[in-house]
Design a protein around this nucleic acid. Structure first.
Lengths: 336, 336
DNA sequence: AGATTCTCCCAAAGCGCTTTGGCTTTTCGG
DNA sequence: CCGAAAAGCCAAAGCGCTTTGGGAGAATCT
């Protein structure tokens, strides 16, 4: 340790820097000043070796091998999480992984010992990663949940069911009867739940969901466009549409304009809105009526939760359910 | 080392695993098999301590403190880069940083020794980070360049000047004379260069850029919308617009539709297209005429370059200039 | 004043690897 | 069949920290 050039032992310096009580206030001050002056930071690897903690958390983000798509939500989630990490002095390491080698990837992270915990992204229904991670013994928090997994684990999720149920009810209240759903991939848990909310709301009013009105796919702009075009070509085209993401909604808007239809008059649209920084849906006057839930906030909460579990590994799993706001914008109106 | 339970010394096991020639093929096989069976991975921290290499690279991404915006391009860049890291056995660590503490952040990364190199994102004109990093002695590659910095450093960039020059020329060829530019923040180097390309093309044809036709701001959808609305309200509204990002272009489209104008007929639009996975501009029939350059590819190239420089720190800085393709879509047409 | 407790500090061990230097066998040329 | 080189292995040092177990001197108690 370099800072031992002030005639002190390593022990004392280490203790001074880490706030142990065995050093006098005077020497602590002296050590801290010297550290500042020399721009000294304890070597993370050595510290990690000695303490057994990596001071880092891992985000494993699955890249869909089929479409190679990167979830645009990820950047904002990370931005939220990184605040918490920064405050706690943790680093964040990222690994992208194909669907194949995921389990192996986790094992590797654990064995190499370079993270103290994990955030799991994009859970699918019955996601095998969760039982696997429980067996691994590495603290983790899931962004979302996995239907079908009964065991107890930590998660942060938004209430997809209630959000889509409310949005659907709202459309029904406006007189809409033929309501379509342009959803994400329904193997993904969040999309599965949104569909449930959608169907529940219909069932509440004695409506039955028409299979032709329900689309499921990767949430790109062109998917939104294509799906909407299909819907418009139907004999009994829907008068309202629920969209699972702002980007889909943009594709929907394009399809409507191209067909010469007016958003909110000819066809009503409600979209889910992750409140992404670069896609703000109008702060004051929202373009789209939306169920909004900030993914950035979810990131912050998930990170804080994970840090808590790293600090106290024995505590029971925690969970946090965020309620989305239903925000009325210009894209909805009474059924024509 | 756990694997020493097969009656071998640490030395031999280490050598077997790392491919040194001092062990017999037979024992090497035995060691590798055992490692496989026991799912053994050398502890990264211990290895790092012993070798002095972190086997990790850092991405420091600046989060604009004013608007807290996360660049949507980032996810795709990372996706491209991570392939290269994965192949080389490197990890990727992320830190977000406000504009303030950046230098400190780099120093910290260096001192803590948890990265072997850095990728610098979002360079600004005269970006102070570059001389600073050159002084630090940590290999780095810039995604983009910094006008005003004369010294030699490694970078991967697209040819912003020529891309916007070509796009502008193309519009002039179509008969447009009042051409607007809705640019990113012109403190950012890429936006600065795009403006230069734009102005050069105008100058080539004896046109002068009108200040009222040039906007600069953070590249969100609503910025694109607002800027376009302003332009349309002008006495001599432009007949063509250059946009610095797909997201801006979407905002432009909204403004045009709202004004009852047709894209590509009343107003022509050419946008820059980063070829983001979730915003594909139509694979076969592009919606927007665009100058396209894959940010994912830039990520891959930057990562490979960085790994090369980590392996051979003495080599001279390298650079890679990507040329954008001008892709004709439906958003351009002859001047009305 | 002597016994006892604090207060500060230090030496040394240990975290799990890599690497240097050395030692014992084989192998092989003459 | 002998000596030298090559092959294959090991013990131990060291990477930069934390942490355990003392130990010297000052402060407090009796």
């Amino acid at each position: 340790m370099l800072a031992a050039h002030l005639g002190l032992s390593q022990t004392t310096v280490s203790r001074a820097l880490n706030g142990y009580p065995e050093v006098s206030e005077a020497t602590r001050q002296r050590v801290c000043d010297a550290a500042q002056a020399l721009n000294y930071r304890p070597n993370a690897r050595a510290k990690g070796l000695a303490t057994g903690r990596a001071m880092a958390v891992g985000h494993v983000i699955p890249v869909s091998t089929q479409h190679e798509m990167v979830n645009p939500v990820f950047g904002d989630f990370i931005a939220g999480a990184s605040q918490a990490y920064l405050a706690a002095g943790y680093d964040m390491t990222l690994s992208m992984t194909g669907d194949e080698d995921e389990a192996d990837n986790y094992r590797r992270l654990k064995a190499k010992g370079d993270v103290d915990g994990l955030i799991v992204h994009g859970p699918r229904i019955n996601d095998g990663r969760i039982p696997f991670l429980q067996g691994l013994g590495l603290p983790f928090v899931v962004h979302g949940r996995a239907s079908g997994i009964a065991s107890d684990y930590s998660w942060v999720d938004m209430n997809n069911v209630s959000a889509f149920r409310r949005a659907t009810s709202f459309l029904i209240d406006l007189g809409h009867r033929r309501i379509a759903l342009i959803n994400g991939l329904e193997t993904m848990d969040f999309a599965h739940r949104r569909r449930i909310g959608f169907e529940e709301a219909l069932a509440d009013r004695g409506l039955v969901p028409a299979p032709a009105l329900m689309h499921s796919g990767e949430m790109t702009e062109s998917y939104g466009y294509t799906a909407m075009c299909h819907l418009l070509a139907l004999d009994d085209a829907p008068t309202a549409v629920l969209s699972s993401s702002s980007i889909i909604a943009i594709g929907i808007r394009r399809a409507l304009h191209e067909a010469g239809l007016t958003l909110g008059r000819d066809v009503s649209v409600i979209t889910h809105d992750d409140d992404l920084t670069y896609l703000s849906n109008g702060r004051d006057v929202p373009i789209f009526t939306a169920v909004r839930s900030s993914v950035r906030e979810a990131g912050r909460i998930a990170a804080e939760m994970l840090l808590r579990h790293i600090a106290a590994p024995q505590t029971a799993p925690e969970s946090h359910l965020l309620e989305a706001q239903l925000i009325i914008g210009g894209s909805t109106g009474p059924a024509p």
